[in-house]
């Protein structure tokens, strides 16, 4: 029957050398920052996905002075442009926005009385394409011939710019994560080295009694793993309410109505992307892994000075 070393057996005196205050607090702070960076990553990804869905293969066509007669034929400029659009291959639908729809669109910018303003507002046609837009220049030329001043706006270009922005933000979030992990590793390495020098005598005695490097490094690594994981769990818990608040603020932009999210606990918890829920528990695990690897290698390097 094999019974292992008693769990409280602290032959190297690490409980005081690697104290349970400084290291967990610092790692907790790092984890808090890591959680924010992760939220930034997932948040930008969610926004980008939402906008991309909404504006996939579509165009907006603006027709100024829509009710004026067209250059040729007896119809209005709007009707001429609409006719041209529906006759164009690759166009799935072309729908002229009603005054009400237009007013809704402008409300955030001009307020309730947008339709009563004395400024000429162009007619807007929402066009859905069957595929992604090919070269739009010929179409824009033909529309401009039929109704001079007509503008074709390609959403793909905006989506492209948005994608670049999102990728940059995600790169920044990734960089922040790497930095935070690096700083956490340094903090653990410094704490381990301090522990090594305060426990030098005990280490030499244990080493002299035939302990392997792996044994001694394992004792340090176990302690560092415990402290880092506990600190990270604390940091992640503190970050949680902040993330929930951010998710609530972001809800209207990713298609959830502003009022509904956050009224009940369930709604509040549902506001975080599933990916973030999966990633948050990874923080203490990663911190523990960083603690283990850092302490282990620092101690092994230090032990090489002993015979």
């Amino acid at each position: 029957m094999i019974s292992l070393r008693p769990s409280g057996f602290d032959e190297l005196g690490l409980r005081r050398a690697l104290s349970d205050r400084m290291l967990p607090v610092l790692v907790g702070a790092m984890t808090f920052l890591a959680a924010l960076a992760m939220a930034g990553w997932f948040g930008t990804a969610a926004l980008a996905r939402h906008w991309q869905q909404g504006a996939g293969a579509s165009l907006t066509v603006q027709v100024p002075q829509a009710t004026d007669p067209a250059a040729s034929g007896g119809q209005t400029r709007l009707a001429a442009v609409l006719a041209l659009l529906t006759g164009t291959p690759g166009v799935a639908s072309a729908h002229a926005l009603s005054d009400q729809e237009l007013a809704d669109l402008l409300k955030p910018w001009l307020g309730q009385g947008a339709d009563r303003l004395a400024i000429p507002i162009p007619a807007v046609i929402a066009v859905r394409l069957t595929g992604t837009a090919s070269d739009l220049a010929p179409l824009a030329h033909r529309l401009d011939d039929a109704a001079p001043g007509t503008l074709v706006e390609d959403h793909d270009r905006w989506i492209g710019r948005l994608a670049v922005l999102v990728r940059s933000l995600q790169a920044c979030a990734g960089l922040a994560l790497l930095l935070v992990a690096g700083v956490a590793a340094s903090v653990i390495a410094v704490a381990t080295r301090a522990g090594l020098s305060t426990r030098r005598e005990a280490i030499e005695i244990v080493h002299g009694l035939g302990a392997t490097d792996a044994y001694i490094a394992g004792r340090f690594a176990a302690r560092a793993t415990l402290l880092a994981a506990a600190g990270a769990a604390g940091g992640a818990l503190v970050a949680l309410p902040v993330l929930l608040a951010l998710a609530r603020l972001a809800a209207p932009f990713v298609g959830q109505p502003a009022g509904t999210a956050g009224d009940t606990l369930q709604d509040a918890l549902g506001a975080l992307p599933v990916a973030l829920w999966l990633a948050l528990p990874c923080l203490p695990v990663s911190a523990g892994a960083i603690g283990f690897a850092t302490a282990h290698s620092a101690v092994r390097r230090w032990l090489r000075r002993l015979p």
């Binding site: 029957m1 019974s3 032959e11 005196g13 005990a202 244990v206």
Partner: peptide, 22 residues
């Protein structure tokens, strides 16, 4: 080792060698 009891000091070489606790 100053932080260990007499018992634990004497037990240390056995524990390092991984002997069963009993």
């Amino acid at each position: 080792l100053p932080h260990l009891s007499a018992f634990d000091n004497v037990a240390l070489p056995l524990r390092i060698a991984g002997r069963p606790e009993g």
